[in-house]
Design a protein around this nucleic acid. Structure first.
Lengths: 357, 357
DNA sequence: CTGTTAGCGCCTTCAA
DNA sequence: TTGAAGGCGCTAACAG
């Protein structure tokens, strides 16, 4: 019970060699005679010795731990990224410390502190809050902590910061254009915390781009900012449906929001897509399993994670790498042509030619 | 760029005190004069010094890192547990290293190795594979690594191992009994990898208990073992529906499986619950958002995480603690009385009095 | 191929 | 209240 963890010295003693030799036998087996290696391994096994990676790191001055911050682990989307990061990390003998920021700047800041204290080799950041941007930029230049921003293509100056993302604005435009092509002109948007996070703001921009291109006036009352959780999606959709002139197409810029929205639609007795079309974003696992299956923007979450981890771990990776991935629309059952008849007794008026404010 | 991370010595130099004093000023502010403390803090701030928690741990011989293993982070369920563990850990100045085992014994073993090498203070284990049980038991007694098993109440000897779980067998019985009370007699079970994991095996046991109590014969062809993912749930349900005499009620012992099953049901043009009733397990966030909303067994995932983390972190916690939580059935729209008419042209025969093999 | 010697960054007696 | 010295477990440079 509670025996002290043993160290190399004890292994050395049993194997009748020096500590340095044990270290070599364990980490660079070639640099040691067959006989010695066998004796060391034998002793280690017999004692049940477990290498102390913490001491190793501190002694070499290197770090074999990477930190990962996501907004919420409960979003299946980020979970996929986490998985692939772990795979790459484990294969390279690294560990990952992770944290969920919950879209909260203060929590995010504290988590970054913790990771830095833990002397991580690098940081994978997702959904970075505006408030932390400056600090991260400074960190990237003034320290040797590698930084990778994921899920977005940062708008400006990423000189020393790597990123693995895609064009959220274009992706968003794609989704909305799909609705427009189906004849929808009154299109709602339920979107994440764009006032705090760049990635989300770009999705709002893409929505406006699509509207502009089609000459549809921008109506702020159709845009709802919510946290990407099902409850919030449901409430937002309820609010949309309660309006004078509800939208016939809705773009929920996160599958989690879309799931909630779908529920609200069913609860209101509306049919999807014949009454209302719905588009999500992320193509989470479950998006293909809703009723009807969700049309959504597909992003290769696993690939993002893999690339991000490689950037951090691969010693050959230069100062910073920038990957901008493609993403496409997966059309499933939740979107269809706008219907001509009235929705719940109201006529949907078509506005054309309006110039967005 | 890439300036070397600075250490206490440099802070000490600037503050014109010794390293020991810096250490004290930072960790035990009371043991230092007001003046000194101010100077040290000032110097640290000016330099942008970041405390090295790794060196701290190694020097004290303590550990402020805890390891968490879950089968899959993508299961929203475990994500919740992770969140709450992190909250507790962060509040206590600890970090969490986590890993996803994917129900694979080899991966699980490798992850445990890594965590041990990282000298975690303790391990939170979920869905421990049979193959690792012995090793863990030994670890719990022979080392000072604390172990907490979660999500299940281990069947035997947990002398030195803590757990925070609930009675999976009873919970499962609860779900099946609900179906029986609705008049179902032909009940399918889609369940996780019970041949590798105890928690899952208990769910199978509970299913049989309920059947036994009602005098319903156990039919092995109605039991399908699958990994808890939507695809597998869909395929399993398809297999069930393809049988001579498909079940009228199905218990999917994981919401992820239930989501997939629901899809298969819709795709087959069947109505839930009037054609087939479906019960899930876990009460994941999204369970309330399916169509129809899922009847499922509710477990307080966040509470499990909180308790587990406390056991590991709280120095006052004795050698081992055992929590067995309650869990209850949340009845929503996916279950209803068995219908008397034929299902897809076939009669559901009622078997009674059979003794399970 | 192996042992000796420093040293990584911090903490903790023990004196002063 | 503060500093000096030794040590945590391991690695790296240098002899031999």
């Amino acid at each position: 019970m509670a025996e002290r963890q043993l160290n190399m010295r004890e292994v050395a003693r049993l194997a009748e060699v020096s500590v340095a030799t044990v270290s070599r036998a364990l980490r660079e087996p070639d640099k040691v005679s067959d006989d010695t290696r066998a004796r060391v391994n034998g002793a280690a096994a017999q004692l049940g010795y477990i290498y102390n990676a913490v001491a190793g790191d501190i002694s070499t001055g290197r770090s074999t731990v990477i930190g990962v911050l996501v907004p919420a682990a409960s979003n299946a989307l980020f979970a996929e990224t986490l998985h692939s990061i772990q795979d790459v990390a484990m294969a390279a003998g690294h560990s990952t410390i992770q944290g969920a920021t919950r879209y909260d700047e203060a929590i995010e800041g504290k988590l970054i502190d913790t990771l830095l204290q833990r002397r991580v080799k690098g940081l994978v950041l997702t959904g970075l809050t505006y408030g932390q941007e400056a600090r991260i930029a400074q960190l990237a230049t003034a320290s040797d902590v590698r930084i990778v921003i994921t899920w977005e293509k940062p708008p400006v100056d990423t000189g020393s910061i790597s990123y693995v993302g895609f064009d959220n604005r274009k992706a968003s435009e794609l989704a909305v254009r799909h609705l427009i092509e189906l004849g929808h002109t009154r299109i709602g948007l339920i979107v994440g915390p764009y006032s705090r996070i760049a990635r989300t703001r770009h999705r709002l921009d893409g929505y406006r781009d699509a509207l502009d291109a089609a000459g549809i006036a921008f109506d702020p009352s159709l845009v709802l900012e919510r946290l990407p959780e099902p409850v919030e999606g449901r409430e937002a959709m309820e609010a949309l449906l309660a309006q004078e002139e509800p939208p016939t197409g809705v773009f929920a810029a996160s599958d989690m929001l879309a799931f909630g929205a779908l529920r609200a639609l069913h609860a209101a007795g509306l049919d999807v897509p014949s009454d209302v079309s719905l588009v999500g974003f992320d193509d989470v696992d479950l998006a293909a399993y809703t009723h009807p299956p969700l049309t959504t923007v597909r992003v290769d979450a696993a690939r993002i994670g893999r690339l991000a981890a490689q950037i951090l771990i691969d010693p050959a990776e230069a100062r910073s790498r920038h990957y901008c991935l493609d993403c496409d629309l997966v059309i499933r059952g939740s979107t269809g042509p706008v219907r001509s008849g009235p929705l719940r007794g109201r006529h949907t008026e078509i506005k054309l030619g309006g110039i967005p404010s």
